[in-house]
Simulated assay, not measured.
Amino acid sequence: MRRFIVSCLVGLSLALSPLQGALAQTARRADQIRLEPQRPGLTDVYVLSFGLWGPQSVFESEAKGAARVLERQFDAKGRSIVRFNTKRHSGATPRSLLAAAEAAGRALDPAEDVVVLVLTSHGAPEGIGLVAGREARLVTPGDVRMLLDESRAQHRVVIVSACYSGVFAEELADERTLVITAAAADKPSFGCRDGAAWTYFGDAFFNRALRDEARLDAAFDKARGLVTQREKREGFDPSNPQMAGGAQVLERLKEACGAAPAQQAACRCARTAVC
């Protein structure tokens, strides 16, 4: 099993065309997507969740599941966009990614709100793959920076569930950009099985840790332990999930937590260390 998972990544970056050219050629008003407007005086969270690798259904499932959990934890219903590719459907294309980022940019307050970008796919040391029908692209940290800039949000969260995804933490993290990745820049991650509901990291972070702990840093610490335990139990080398940057974002998310009564319970008094 380990040999199969690793072998599916060999040569990935060489087989895919760069995404940036496709983004640059995309019409600026590609698709009109309507999101709930931001609420003045509150920190609203906008979620963009993309399952990029069409040939395997686990990435569709993970993109959908991640968005559901994030919506519940951050009161983001009506402020989320989920796009994915499947064997027969191409929903997460360069055009639709850019359109989603632009839609968030039209709805949010750049200084007040937070955008959360979730990407799940196969990865390579240079980035992650986007396969939509016959279109195959490599999504690099530079491409992700472009999408974040299109959203206009000054406070951003990037969560990448893919092999070698630590490259995104290395290149994008700063005080206003929190980056969480399934693996270090030189490590594969595991669980990309067709038909599975989650990858190993997606299950640990979204499906288990984040359901009970809305503080992203605390949820990450719990998920990293769960992933490491599972990998050791199944004989894999540790993927070493990463979290970097985001000091100002985490403070902003504390303000978002508790904006609605139901959210106060979900966030478990995240404004302080204890309830």
Rank of each mutant, 00 (worst) to 15 (best):
N207L: 09
E171V: 02
A173P: 03
G166S: 11
A153P: 08
P241I: 04
A24G: 12
G235H: 10
G133S: 08
A107Q: 03
L48W: 07
L48R: 03
L14W: 11
P37W: 07
A132P: 05
A209Y: 03
V157M: 06
A99H: 02
D203L: 15
A183C: 07
D44E: 11
W198D: 01
A184C: 09
D149L: 10
L52P: 00
A244N: 12
T120S: 13
V179S: 02
V274D: 09
Q229C: 00
D109S: 10
L226V: 05
K254T: 10
G235P: 08
T93M: 02
R145Y: 12
R208I: 08
T140G: 03
R233A: 14
I159C: 03
R72F: 10
E234F: 11
L98Q: 06
T26A: 12
A182W: 04
A15K: 15
L119M: 08
E36D: 14
K77N: 11
Y164P: 01
I180L: 15
G105C: 04
M1V: 11
A162H: 10
A104Q: 02
L178C: 07
G123Q: 09
E231I: 05
I128A: 02
Q20D: 15
G105N: 07
G123T: 09
E170N: 10
S161M: 03
E251A: 11
R215Q: 13
A132K: 00
A30V: 06
E150T: 04
G245V: 01
A27G: 12
P241L: 03
V144S: 06
D212Y: 13
W53A: 05
S7I: 03
G225D: 13
V10D: 15
C275D: 13
C8V: 14
V10W: 14
A173W: 02
F59G: 03
R137Y: 13
P18V: 00
M146F: 15
P55R: 12
G133L: 04
A66E: 09
L130P: 00
V131S: 11
A262N: 11
A273C: 10
R68H: 07
R28W: 09
A124F: 02
A244P: 02
N240P: 00
G195D: 05
P141G: 06
A15P: 01
L178A: 05
R95F: 01
E255C: 06
F190C: 00
L148S: 07
D44H: 08
H89E: 07
E62D: 11
A132S: 12
A27S: 13
L117D: 02
A92E: 01
M243V: 12
T228S: 13
A262M: 12
A185L: 05
D237E: 15
I81G: 02
L97N: 00
G65H: 06
A270H: 04
R176T: 09
T26Q: 10
E36P: 03
A260C: 03
N240F: 09
L178Q: 04
A24Q: 13
W53D: 02
E171A: 12
H155V: 00
E171C: 05
R34F: 09
C163A: 10
S121R: 05
K87T: 13
L42N: 10
G225N: 11
